[in-house]
């Protein structure tokens, strides 16, 4: 259902969405149960003619506490453990592991632009046929990419909603990560960390292309911002 609003464009997007679903279902279940019980008790113990309020003594309080606090508390802890296990699993896959990658793309953030260094036809960075673009990222469908993310000035965050990818860029550090596009198309990239007055106008465009279209782009990077052999 989440993919109805935002397509799942990377190999791990569905896993992140699955985790969101787990959290959503668990919290929805407990929210409805707690609110339902709250309103039921309000109705059940409403003021009625001839019935007096019952003062709680220590023994009764202990029994009530166990039934209404301790048991739900332990059940919620079990749910927490389930969420944590799921989160650690997804975090480990997305952030901690680095699969064998086909290509590397270098991403540099600055106020208020994204610079992308793509490997050219040789598939290797830092060679004569590298293609450097501003605000346009071109990748091939189905390839696994390693990215190297840096910032020139202040904190930025590389956010690609269709990939369910968000990674802070920190001046002085090169942060590595990966993604594998699974849907061809044209998508948004946006800075997701406040970075100055131009933060809101710091978007970029992601082009996920079929192998044929990507080869064509590498051969003819026609965009006027593309600089070959720089």
């Amino acid at each position: 259902m989440l993919e109805h609003y935002m397509i799942q464009g990377s190999s791990y997007a569905s896993h992140i969405d699955g985790l969101v679903w787990v959290v959503l279902l668990i919290t929805t279940f407990w929210f409805l149960l707690a609110e339902g019980m709250f309103f039921y008790l309000l109705w059940r113990y409403r003021e009625q003619p001839g019935k007096k309020a019952l003062y709680i003594n220590d023994d009764l309080e202990h029994a009530i506490k166990y039934k209404w606090v301790e048991i739900p508390h332990r059940l919620i802890l079990i749910c927490d453990v389930a969420v944590i296990l799921g989160a650690v699993s997804v975090w480990s896959e997305v952030k901690l592991s680095m699969p064998v990658t086909d290509e590397t793309v270098r991403i540099t953030a600055q106020q208020w632009a994204w610079t992308f260094r793509h490997a050219g036809a040789d598939g290797e960075l830092d060679t004569a046929d590298d293609i450097v673009t501003v605000d346009d990222l071109h990748v091939q469908l189905g390839k696994t990419y390693k990215f190297e993310l840096a910032a020139k000035d202040v904190l930025h965050s590389f956010s690609v909603p269709v990939f369910r990818l968000k990674q802070d860029a920190i001046p002085g550090r090169v942060i590595s990560g990966w993604f594998k596009p699974t849907q061809a198309g044209e998508f948004d990239v946006q800075c997701a960390e406040i970075c100055g007055i131009g933060h809101g106008i710091m978007p970029a465009r992601l082009y996920v292309e079929t192998p044929e279209a990507h080869a064509e782009w590498i051969a003819h990077p026609t965009h006027y911002l593309a600089y070959k052999n720089k």
């Binding site: 600055q110 632009a113 911002l225």
Partner: peptide, 22 residues
């Protein structure tokens, strides 16, 4: 138009470019 400030190494120009488009 990208005639100025669109070069990847133009740090100041890349700041001015989006601002100009406001």
């Amino acid at each position: 138009w990208g005639w100025r400030g669109a070069h990847p190494d133009d740090v100041e120009g890349l700041k001015m470019r989006p601002m100009s488009r406001t």
